[in-house]
Structure formats: structure tokens, C-alpha cells
Design a protein around this nucleic acid. Structure first.
Ligand SMILES: [Mn+2]
Ligand SMILES: [Mn+2]
Ligand SMILES: [Zn+2]
Ligand SMILES: [Zn+2]
Lengths: 132, 132
DNA sequence: AACTTATTTGCAACTTAGTTGCATTTTATG
DNA sequence: CATAAAATGCAACTAAGTTGCAAATAAGTT
């Protein structure tokens, strides 16, 4: 486990922003609903704070069947592809993309690139073992 | 332009399923709303037909800020990454992923892979030229 | 501390994508 | 034509996310 204090950006956070960052640090990746259930604050508060955390570049949104959120601190959690299980809709964080693969993918467009989201869909081992 | 009849799967389509496939063939990629506005049928009909077309493997869903749909016929439209403009939310279809890049990406997980969705986000040229 | 201002929150109302049940219409089949 | 199956429209619903506004909390000033 990484030390939460290693990420400079977290120092100035307050109130629900801090609570969310702390929870994401502990749990890895969570949906807005999961955050709300744990923190027991209004969903407007959750979404407003998620937005401001994204604007501050502290978290990022992972779009799947529903949206998930995870920390965006380089020390803790570099950008990586995700695996989405088509049976249970669970999201698995994969190991970060290599520099070579990142460059290769970025060659597919000439537009100005802001981020590269790779989502591999399939069946996770847990769900595969339940098939018959 | 490809000939619509080249894709075997389209032969047995009827009613709204056929209308949707025909429109996607012509326009490339459309949202459920865009389809509804053009075809002037109830949105339940749109979504029901989109679902059955996906189940028949004739179209695929492209998840962005909102969902888009495009043909899934190999002759017409092999699987490819997408560019999503963070300003105008427009979706651009990119050239298909090379076999090498596909294999490289598939190595990031050991789970059973069903599909690989690559979405590059950034600013399209049109929106970039409007900045100041 | 007391006063004032800015920030954060809860609540309720709203929007939008997508789903579902059910009655009606359309299409297929003998 | 008669009957069954499939497709559609309609309305009500769910779930994620947004927004206005008033109340509460925190921060800054004398
Ligand atoms: Mn992740
Ligand atoms: Mn496409
Ligand atoms: Zn699973
Ligand atoms: Zn754009």
C-alpha cells in the first residue's frame, strides 16, 4: 500500500473532497453510488465534489456500464487500461500501458490527444467458473 | 462506399431493424436519439431494435458521453478505435487497429477477451480552430 | 468574541438515457 | 378468412447526473 501523504495534491483538500480521495485511495475504484453509501452525504454533494476533483486532476472517471472513479496521482496509480466483465460488470485495473504501446496507439489520430482510454471487455475468471 | 448487400447478415432484417441498419450504413455512427429523430418511431422501438441488432452481432455500441451505434459488418466496418472530442463530444472513427497492436493490447489481461475498445480523447481540429 | 463573507451542504425538482408492461397494430401462416 | 406470432406505440418507470436555492458551516476581519 502506498502512503496517502506521498501525493502532494491531496494536501489542500477539505471536507467531502478529502473523504472521497481517502476512500478511493483505500478502495481503488468506486462508483458514485458506492461513495454515497459509504460517506452518507447527499448525491449532489458527491457529484459536485467528483467534478471538482476531476477538474483539479486528482481523480479520473472510468466510463463503463456505469461510471467509476479512481485516483489520478502518478505515485499511486498511473494511467492504465481496464477490464470490464460483461457478466458481472466489475471493473479490473490492469497494469499501466508501456511507453511503446502508448505511442503506437497515439498514432491512430492526428487530433490533439488528451487521454487514451483502453477498455478490454470479456468474462472474468470468477464469472467464467460459474458457467456451465 | 461499400455495397450494403455485401453483408450477408442484413438479408434477413425486417422493419425497424432494417431501417436502422440502412441508416447506420449511410451515416456511419449515430446515437439512439439521432436514429429516432430520423426514423420517427417510438424510442422503445429504437432501443428494442438496437438491442436485438447487437444480439445478432450486426451492430455494436460505442460508449461515449452518450452511446452511439455503428455497423458490425466485417466487410463494411472492421473494429477500430474512436476519437472523442472533449469539446463537442463528437465521435470520429479511426483506422482499424493493426494485428500487432491488437495482440499487444490483449496481453494486458489473462481474462477471456470479448472485445477491445480504444477511445482516444482530445480536441478535434474543428474545435481547436475555434479556441483563442 | 462578534460580525461579515465565502464555501459547502441538503433538499427537491429536474433532465436524459434507457427499460418494461400492456394493449393495439401489423405481419405471417394454414 | 381465421388465427397465431411478431412489432409497435404509449405511458409509466428507473437510475445517473444536474441545478437552484435556502440553510449550515467555515474562514476572514475588526
Ligand atoms: Mn483503474
Ligand atoms: Mn466507429
Ligand atoms: Zn465477472
Ligand atoms: Zn470537437
Amino acid at each position: 500500500m502506498y502512503n496517502f501523504n506521498m501525493c502532494e495534491k491531496f494536501k489542500n483538500l477539505k471536507n467531502t473532497e478529502y473523504d472521497i480521495a481517502l476512500l478511493l485511495n483505500k478502495k481503488g475504484i468506486l462508483s458514485a453510488n458506492e461513495l454515497q453509501e459509504i460517506l452518507k452525504v447527499d448525491k449532489a454533494t458527491i457529484y459536485r465534489n467528483l467534478k471538482s476533483l476531476i477538474k483539479k486532476n486528482i481523480i479520473r472517471k472510468v466510463s463503463a456500464k456505469k461510471s467509476f472513479y479512481e485516483l489520478n496521482c502518478n505515485i499511486h496509480n498511473p494511467i492504465h487500461p481496464h477490464f470490464e466483465c460483461i457478466k458481472c460488470n466489475k471493473i479490473y485495473c490492469l497494469k499501466p500501458l508501456s511507453a511503446e504501446d502508448t505511442i503506437n496507439i497515439s498514432r491512430y489520430t492526428n487530433f490533439e490527444i488528451h487521454s487514451i482510454d483502453i477498455k478490454i471487455k470479456g468474462t472474468c475468471d470468477e464469472c467464467k467458473s460459474m458457467d456451465n
